[in-house]
């Protein structure tokens, strides 16, 4: 299989206007991913499936990831003019990252027995602009998995043949796998509460040190 850089070059030629970038993966697994923009994702997916060298006909895994917006403080060395001389000064800088939901696709090829190629698509924000194109018309295996992402994360896949909740019941509100999901207050007594469960317990009654002895 070609390297990711070669795939990106050919993708840009095959789907004009597509914005494809490589996101490096620092772990020893070495599985770098391709970030694609939502507008050209469907055309790109068709090309990946039908290109005679890649033939990525098997979409193995479709995942959702929630990246809430976080602010990190980074130390950066900047060249500045101090007292008339140019020196390197360490400055702290606030870096914002996240604030979107992400759909990750792992693609393999059964014909050519190679893979994986990891595709990523990001929504614009986590509140109202959560639409992404559905890749179910290209790979049918995404059908149930995209429904699950809609159910648990809230990404609305446009073009999905049957987008409704799959694991939670239909009248359920909210999306459980988001990082800011608040569970309903349905605490039941339990004898050994810890940490978060203990905090919930305190709202309902005063837990004694367990062991009624």
């Amino acid at each position: 299989m070609d390297t990711l850089e070669q795939i990106v070059a050919r993708a840009r030629a095959a789907v004009p206007g597509a914005q494809v970038t490589i996101l490096p993966n620092e772990s020893p697994s070495g599985q770098h991913s391709l970030l694609v923009d939502a507008a050209h994702a469907l055309a790109l997916a068709r090309w990946l499936r039908d290109d005679p060298d890649l033939r990525l006909d098997y979409c193995s895994n479709v995942t959702g990831v929630d990246w809430p917006e976080v602010e990190r403080v980074e130390k950066v060395r900047v060249k500045k003019v101090v007292d008339g001389a140019e020196t390197e000064v360490e400055e702290t800088r606030k870096v914002r990252s996240g604030g979107y939901l992400e759909a990750v696709y792992h693609l393999y090829s059964m014909h050519k027995r190679h893979g994986p190629v990891v595709l990523r698509m990001r929504t614009e924000n986590r509140a109202d602009r959560v639409q992404l194109p559905s890749l179910t018309p290209v790979w049918r295996s995404a059908e149930f998995q995209e429904r699950e992402i809609y159910d648990l994360f809230g990404i609305v896949f446009e073009g999905h043949p049957d987008l409704r909740r799959i694991l939670m019941w239909d009248e359920f509100k909210d999306h459980p796998m988001r990082k800011d999901y608040v569970e309903p207050d349905d605490y039941e007594w339990e004898p050994t509460p810890h940490d978060a469960v203990l905090a919930k317990a305190r709202k309902h009654f005063t837990p004694t040190t367990s062991s009624g002895a």
Partner: peptide
């Protein structure tokens, strides 16, 4: 505590 990154194994 693995270093930041991701992996898919099957």
């Amino acid at each position: 505590r693995p270093k930041p990154g991701e992996a898919y194994a099957r």
